[in-house]
């Protein structure tokens, strides 16, 4: 196992700058989520680490080995593709054994490792099936088994769960995390699904327009975003209108900063809670969704959102004036 270091990587496609001087460190054995909107360069970064693209400038290290000039075939990586890219002409066992056969692993060991890996992803009985005979979740497991069977230095996942439906996706998230922890492999994955990134990763990198915006543990990035983009992209942010700043307990000077509050940090009531930061708003809608409820509120013309357990929201008089309050430490400050 080994970590991955990316230093000052620049990658262009024609005139478009896909990666602009990106430096990130992917710790050994960690689960790193690359998050960003489409076109942010997250997939390009993953594919550059894999070796499908060569960067114009910068260095990449996998473990102690500089690899920026090494072709994919020799980088010793495991990669899982969005559509799984299973070999349709081979059985599950042959799919998983492909990388072993390429490495000329002896037949007996090959069989043993195929069986072991299929057990790890809980596909023991399906070795002789064809990919076409498998369900989406099973294909996903085959793709994972195929990527890890050769004990690669790093596991790269390109939107690994986006092709699954929601309930299966949650199961697979837990499963993926378990397997990653079991074998302790350095894992980098790309997603545009913030919830998935928060669930799986122990570090998150947010990309925008080919640049790294912020890197850190999920909680840190969520609680202390470095700028307005990070605040709005990972989780939702209610921006406090400038006209309302007076009288609030703020963590930074109103000059040169903007302030936001997360939807779940808010409490709602018919009277101001004077011990906390409070703002007046107009309730637009209350949406019941089982255990949780969402309230849409208009504060000085800007739309706010509150998320709370439904039982924690008091009965409110239809649509009308409400007070929102939150603890001062829950205010997020970012440079304007």
């Amino acid at each position: 196992m080994s970590g991955v270091e990316v230093q000052n990587i620049t990658k262009r496609f024609g005139r478009a700058l896909a990666l602009d001087d990106v430096t990130v460190s992917f710790p050994d054995g960690g689960f790193f989520g690359l998050l960003g909107p489409s076109g942010s360069g997250k997939t390009t970064l993953l594919r550059t680490i894999a070796g499908f693209h060569y960067p114009e400038a910068g260095r990449i290290r996998i473990g102690d080995r500089p690899v920026e000039q090494v072709p994919v075939e020799q980088r010793d990586i495991g990669m899982m593709f969005q559509n799984y890219a299973l070999f349709p002409n081979m059985s599950v066992a042959d799919n998983v054994g492909f990388g072993l056969r390429v490495r000329r692993v002896p037949a007996a060991e090959e069989r043993r490792r195929i069986a072991e890996t299929l057990d790890l992803v809980q596909l023991g009985g399906l070795a002789d099936r064809r990919p076409a005979q498998l369900s989406g979740g099973q294909r996903q497991r085959v793709a994972l088994a195929r990527a890890i069977v050769t004990n690669p230095k790093v596991l790269l996942l390109d939107e690994p769960l986006s092709a699954l439906d929601k309930s299966l996706r949650v199961d697979m998230q837990i499963e993926l995390k378990r397997i990653q922890r079991d074998i302790g492999i350095t894992t980098i994955f790309v997603t545009h699904d913030q919830e998935e990134a928060l669930t799986l990763s122990d570090r998150i990198g947010i990309l925008r327009a080919g640049r790294i915006v912020q890197v850190g543990p999920p909680r840190e990035v969520y609680d202390r975003p470095v700028d307005a983009f990070a605040a709005g992209f990972l989780g939702e942010a209610n921006w406090i209108p400038d006209s309302c700043l007076a009288g609030l307990d703020l963590p930074a000077s109103p000059q040169g900063h903007r302030f936001a509050v997360r939807p779940e940090a808010l409490a709602i009531g018919t009277a101001p809670d004077l011990a906390r930061n409070a703002l007046r708003g107009r309730l637009v809608q209350r949406v019941f969704a089982g255990a949780m409820a969402t309230c849409l509120i208009e504060v000085e013309g800007s739309p706010w959102k509150l998320v709370a357990r439904d039982r924690d929201i008091p009965d409110l008089p239809g649509a009308g004036e409400v007070w929102l309050s939150w603890a001062a430490r829950d205010t997020i400050a970012v440079p304007a």
């Binding site: 994919v72 075939e73 990669m79």
Partner: peptide, 12 residues
């Protein structure tokens, strides 16, 4: 993707 997957596994 199938070809890229094979390359990522080290296939010539």
């Amino acid at each position: 993707d199938i070809i890229e997957a094979a390359r990522s596994m080290g296939a010539s």
